[in-house]
Design a binder for these strands. Structure first.
Lengths: 211, 211
DNA sequence: TTACCCCTCGCATCAAGATGTGATCTAAGC
DNA sequence: GCTTAGATCACATCTTGATGCGAGGGGTAA
C-alpha cells in the first residue's frame, strides 16, 4: 500500500511539530511538505510540479493570507487535492466559507492526533469527516428554521404562482391551466392582496427565495 | 447520569431487533418506544404526551409514509427531538431531503452497532455524526462547481439588475440610480441582449439562481 | 484621429400586467 | 336555509414592460 502524500500548512510551531512527528512517523503517510504560511506553500507548489500532495492539513488562522483565502489558489495548482481544515474556530461563517471554497473536511484542533489521522484516511478514501459540533452546524444550515411558511395561498393559487415563476405570461398560464385570461388576472390579484405585494417581480422573488 | 430516551422506527424485523437488543441492553439508553411504521409512531406520540424521546433512529424506507415524509410531523409533535436517519440509500437527494426536513444525522445501515451507539451519544451532546461517504456528499453540496461566472455585464448593468431583482419597477430604479426612466429601459434592453433573455422574470431567476 | 464601448436620454408602439367593479356557481360550515 | 370562501369569467382603465430607432458625450486603444 502506497503511503498517502501529505502536506501540512500550519504556523504554530508546537502544533506543526506535533503533527509532523505523529503523522510523519506513520508509515501510512508520506509527509511531502510542511509549510508555515500560505505564501510559502503556494510558491513551492508552483515551483515544484512533482510535489503532488493527495491530502493536506490546512490551518485557517495563518499570518498573511488565511487558509480559506488560499484554498482557491491551491485548488488551481492541484485540483485533485483533498483539503482538511484544521482550526480553533467553529464559527459558522468560517466553516461555510471554507467548505464553499472547496475544503472537504473541517476539524477542530482540539481533537486527538488519532482522530486527525483517521480523518486523513477517511478523506483519502473519498469520504469526509467533520467534528461532531461542526457537523451539527453544517446540518443546521439545511433546516435553519422549520418555517414551512408555505404562504396562506390556496392550492389553485399555488398553481398560478408556479406558472408565473416558470416564466409564463398570464395568457400562457391561462392556456396551461385551461382557464380564461381574466381568471388568471383575478387569481393574481388575490394573491397580491394576500401576500401584500404588487408586482410580478416581487412574486417571483419571494417564491424563489424560500426554495 | 440519566439514560437517553430513545425511540426507533424501523420496519425490518432483523435490524429492528438487533438495534433493540444492542441499544436496549445499554444502560446509557432507555428505549422508550419501537415502531414499525411512521403511522404507528405518530399515533403513539400524539396519544401519549408523556412519551418524549430525546433521540430517535428513523428508517427512510418504510411501508406507507416514508421516514423523510414523517419528519415534519414528528418535529411538530416533539420539536426537541434529535433525529438520526438510518438508511441503505446514499442518494444525494434523499440525504438533502432528510436534512432539510430536520434530521440531524444520517447514517448508512452498513455501519456497526457501536457506531450507531456513538452517533446517538454524539447527537445527544449537541453534535452530529455522518457516515464519511455521506458527509462527503454534504460537503460537495457547498462547492459544486467553482463557477464564479459573474456574467458579462458592466458594473452599471449590475446595479440595474440589482434594482430589478430587489423588486423595484423601472421607474423606482431610475429614481434610485438618479437616471431617467428611458435610460433604465435602455440598460435593460442591453442586458437582455447580452444575457439572451427577454423578460424581467428570467432576469430575476437567473440572478437569484447563482447566489 | 478614428473606432468602439459605455452611459445617458428621448420617442414610439405594442404587449403584458395591475387593479377596480361586479357576477355566477359550488362546496363547506353554521 | 343562509353564509362564507374559493374558483370562474367579463369589462374597463391605467401603468409597466419589451423593443426598435436614433443621438450626444466621455473614455480608451489601435
Amino acid at each position: 500500500m502506497k503511503p498517502i502524500a501529505l502536506a501540512i500548512v500550519e504556523d504554530d510551531p508546537i502544533i506543526r511539530e506535533s503533527l509532523r512527528t505523529f503523522l510523519g512517523g506513520d508509515p501510512q503517510f508520506e509527509l511531502v511538505y510542511t509549510a508555515v504560511s500560505m505564501e510559502d506553500f503556494l510558491t513551492v507548489l508552483d515551483t515544484d510540479a512533482r510535489l503532488i500532495p493527495e491530502v493536506m492539513l490546512l490551518d485557517i488562522q495563518l499570518p498573511g493570507q488565511s487558509g480559506i483565502e488560499g484554498i482557491p489558489s491551491i485548488k488551481k495548482l492541484r485540483p485533485g487535492i483533498d483539503i482538511i481544515m484544521l482550526t480553533t474556530f467553529e464559527e459558522s461563517d468560517k466553516i461555510f466559507a471554507a467548505l464553499c471554497a472547496g475544503a472537504c473536511s473541517y476539524l477542530s484542533k482540539r481533537v486527538s492526533l488519532v482522530t486527525i489521522r483517521d480523518a486523513i484516511l477517511t478523506v483519502h478514501r473519498g469520504g469526509s469527516y467533520m467534528s461532531p459540533s461542526i457537523a451539527r452546524k453544517v446540518v443546521e444550515h439545511f433546516a435553519p428554521i422549520p418555517k414551512k411558511e408555505d404562504g396562506p395561498l390556496t392550492s389553485r393559487q399555488h398553481e398560478i404562482v408556479e406558472c408565473i415563476v416558470d416564466g409564463l405570461s398570464y395568457k400562457m398560464a391561462a392556456d396551461k391551466l385551461g382557464i380564461s385570461l381574466d381568471t388568471v388576472r383575478t387569481h393574481i390579484k388575490h394573491i397580491y392582496q394576500v401576500l401584500e405585494i404588487n408586482s410580478k417581480g416581487e412574486l417571483i422573488r419571494r417564491t424563489l427565495d424560500k426554495r
